[in-house]
Design a protein around this nucleic acid. Structure first.
Lengths: 307, 307
DNA sequence: CTGAAAGCGCTTACAG
DNA sequence: CTGAAAGCGCTTACAG
């Protein structure tokens, strides 16, 4: 073809703003890749998941891969619909946070060869790579932090715990309590909470004859609830509080909130690298990668029990 | 076809986990729709944009439309790449927040009939629907709130202002200052800040012979910087502060942070409805929809100037 | 109403 | 190396 013709065609391409239809191309392409990966997250407006998704995007960008992010809103049906929609779009891989109790429904797709990596949970009913915080150790450490300062009556607050990681936080808490010889009846364990009910739960706890001198809150929504309740009673400098998961601006609060911080950036980055390694042909046995948490002392967790 | 055959086929479909390839279907489909819309946001980990995206998803879900969300990270080149990638995927519509100074590059695609709605900015160099906060009125109201309490030396903090909405906040601030007869040299206007530089800027301001008695901060990152600086000097109960954009947990701070709150949920919902109306054939002249802000008094903005 | 053929816009394997 | 044909997996228009 003459150079002149090429130039003329390119000019028209420019003029019309032509963009090749990737879907048409994918249809016949040998590798069958769509250069996209699906990422269902709990809620795109949740800061933990937002950071996770952003970290994944950053790894995908230089590879020219588009990340399809959608919220499953803690709804098991929605999770399955989202996954089905991603598969109809023939995503090259799946990175998922999950709201379902079992992910066996993915086994078939896995056998078809679609790489999948779980974020922030260990898959149930299926074997696949997973990247998640060491929740049990983190909760253990946060709780021990309170015990070391002399607390014995420590309350545990948690959300609904269908997912393994959330259950692990409770386990870590109980590990620490048991190991220190504190009788379990002194440590009320309240789960299934959201922010509102956490407020009431803490107010109730504070009304007891022997109220807890410290609180371990295993999720950021319950931590916010606990802070509201403590501020409402003016006890934020009296009752100690350690929260699992970091909170925006928590260092600006008075007292600063001591937390067991996760590293969503690192989780997202590692998980994305894993998916791409699988796509590049790495066929080793699926593994669970554990990311350590960090105890960040900011004040609320260093309050001693009353003398 | 016999019922028996249908049943046998369906059984195999089930067994293999078959999902129809939507991209193959779209190729020949008459309406040419892919049931997807593209949404480039500033940063998926930014709470304002996260809420925006989530609101859009909620409108799209019952219509069976997938929202392709990606971060442009305030990078003009990335914005254009993202848009190009969305067009190669033949999205049915585009909803965009923007980091570019002009969106003329979209004119061609618009003429091709792709509906587009701008979120949180008015398009430049192109006519299209836009949904955004009434920034100028909001900033005016927040600033007047300080003036009404007797403040005259009010500092303005802002980020880099390429986008119209950010410039409008400064205009609203200046409107209020001028209307009250305060000489402009008493109201330092500092822009181009991020959180770190906002901290230093405020510390510098406080070191002046005649430091400001109040601060109007036009972006949440500068507001956080201002709070840090004030806390650092122990002046958070002395210097008044009004921020534009709500902040997570800002009601738990001491003092609570008075803000001019935007409504990202409403912006996202309305913008999504607009795109779908356009897709349904509504062909009226493009319009700009303005969402009012709300002044939320929490304490920091109600601090009077020193007697 | 049913079933076989054409065609969507690309990539790929193949003949010249 | 170049160019025309086949084919990806669907939907649609058409013939029976």
């Amino acid at each position: 073809v003459s150079e002149d013709t090429v130039a003329r065609v390119m000019a028209v391409v420019e003029e019309l703003g032509y963009q090749a239809n990737v879907q048409a191309g994918n249809l016949r392409r040998k590798d069958g890749l769509t250069n996209s990966i699906g990422l269902p997250v709990g809620g795109i407006d949740n800061p933990f998941h937002g950071t996770l998704a952003h970290a994944v995007e950053k790894v995908a960008l230089p590879r020219g891969v588009t990340v399809l992010v959608n919220s499953l809103d803690q709804d098991e049906d929605r999770e399955r619909e989202l996954v089905a929609a991603f598969l109809r779009r023939r995503v090259d891989g799946l990175m998922l946070t999950t709201a379902s109790e079992s992910q066996r429904y993915l086994a078939l797709e896995q056998r078809h060869g679609t790489p999948m990596v779980f974020l922030d949970s260990i898959p149930v009913g299926i074997e696949a790579d997973a990247v998640l915080s060491n929740s049990r150790a983190g909760a253990f450490r946060g709780t021990r932090h309170l015990i070391e300062r002399g607390h014995r009556r420590i309350a545990y607050l948690g959300i609904k715990d269908v997912v393994t990681t959330v259950r692990d936080r409770r386990r870590g808490f109980l590990d620490a309590v048991r190991r220190s010889g504190i009788p379990e009846q002194e440590t009320p364990v309240i789960t299934g909470l959201d922010e509102q009910s956490a407020v009431s739960a803490v107010l109730d706890l504070l009304d007891r004859d022997e109220p807890p001198t410290a609180i371990f809150s295993s999720h950021f929504v319950t931590t916010v609830g606990a802070i509201r309740a403590l501020q409402h009673r003016g006890l934020q400098h009296v009752v100690a509080l350690v929260g699992f998961d970091d909170l925006a601006l928590s260092d600006l609060l008075d007292p600063g909130v001591t937390v067991v911080a996760q590293d969503p950036q690192r989780i997202g980055t590692l998980a994305a690298e894993l998916v791409f390694a699988r796509l590049d042909g790495v066929a080793s046995k699926p593994r669970t990668y554990t990311i350590e948490t960090e105890l960040v002392e900011r004040g609320s967790g260093e309050i001693p029990p009353p003398a």
